[in-house]
Nucleic acid binder design. Structure first.
Lengths: 210, 210
DNA sequence: TTTTTATTGTTAATCAATTAACAATGTTTA
DNA sequence: TAAACATTGTTAATTGATTAACAATAAAAA
């Protein structure tokens, strides 16, 4: 199962979220067009994504919700799961930690880090906050491979250096500083201002049309 | 200036962020390859994006930082600016409000909303929080056209109904509920779990390779 | 049972985005 | 000044993603 398109990975994660909701509601099967309309995409796209991960059903009563969840899990998750840390426990760090905490058994936020001594050595949003001074040690002790960066922008570059040096393999960067990392570290960046500006641009376009 | 690719809009927003930093540091000109390496993309892509917005320079000493900022502003911003509101002022809502506040003159968060009476009628993260009960009135009074949704997932669908009914034209959805909106409303969705799972997937892939 | 309908899986076609290639032309160096 | 170099702007080629089209077939209706 090599080389799935990046876009497909994102959608699979979203499908699973929806499928877990369906399961909780007792829904056992779901049609491609149902899944599609829940995500504002076409049924063909859903079927194609599902084809790519090698799941199929002989029935014409939609996909087996439980089975599909498992197959997506085989793609996205690792057997033992991965450990992540949130670096910088301000409002955004707290939001992510609290929101994520316990939602995915194969992906855990096992630590948060901050420089502020008022925050360290306490449990915040359900996870213990360590001092940045202990970062390298804790990465080893807790086998952390993913860093979620929510520090102030001016500290981002320097903190990233430490993440990479300590052996972190994937970084999700929420600071408004673009980072450069070595090619063996996966980097995903997200800037909220850009997202808001995109919405603003399309609102502007719509206003022009009418 | 019609029909720029969506991806280009996102990058223009990011270029501007970087250019504003350059300006603050006193840098007056920037090469396409500099801008490119700051964003982990190719110089060609930068030049192409800039071509698409109709800016060009006769010099071979890079782009004029100030001029480029202005041209990007002409594309993204409206003359009078647009007003946005954050709906649901938990940790994430607070993070966005505080982070964004005052950063862009043509895009303002003018109100936040919540159902919790402990939060309403107070200034939170620098912006006044109103009761959800007053939502429709305040959208009119403050001319709000963009809604940033940070309410609990189970309330997302119902709140979205109200946003659309009240005339909101663009929605940025940070809840983990996929929304359906009429085609004249622009919707951008972002789920943090999906982003973390994407990082996890690529970390897994990398581990497999080695 | 037979026919109709609905749904999946998949290939081919289209559309969108990125990258390569290169002409034009300032700028720098010899 | 002349030659070498670096940089931009742009078209063409390539790559990647989405959508259309349709065969196969289970399910439902007649």
């Amino acid at each position: 199962m090599n080389k799935l398109p990046e876009k497909t990975i994102g959608r699979l994660s979203e499908y699973r979220r929806t499928l877990l909701n369906c399961l909780a509601k007792g829904k056992t099967h779901i049609y491609s067009h149902e899944l599609a309309s829940l995500h504002n995409i076409t049924p063909v796209q859903v079927r194609r994504d599902i084809m790519l991960i090698g799941y199929s059903t002989t029935l014409k009563k939609g996909y087996d919700v439980k089975a599909l969840i498992d197959v997506i899990g085989d793609i996205i998750d690792t057997e033992d799961g991965l450990n992540a840390a949130v670096i910088g426990i301000g409002n955004l760090g707290k939001a992510i930690t609290a929101y994520f905490n316990g939602k995915r058994s194969k992906l855990r936020i096992v630590a948060t880090f901050d420089v502020n001594p008022d925050k360290t050595n306490r449990v915040i949003s359900g996870v213990k906050c360590y001092a940045m001074a202990d970062f390298e040690k804790m990465v080893k002790d807790l086998d952390i491979s993913i860093g979620i960066l929510t520090v102030p922008p001016e500290e981002a570059a320097q903190v990233t250096e430490r993440l990479i040096m300590s052996g972190i393999k994937g970084i999700l960067n929420y600071t408004s500083t673009s980072l450069n990392v070595s090619p063996n570290v996966y980097l995903e960046e997200y800037d909220m201002i850009t997202s808001i500006e995109k919405v603003a641009y399309f609102v502007k376009q719509q206003n022009k049309e009418s």
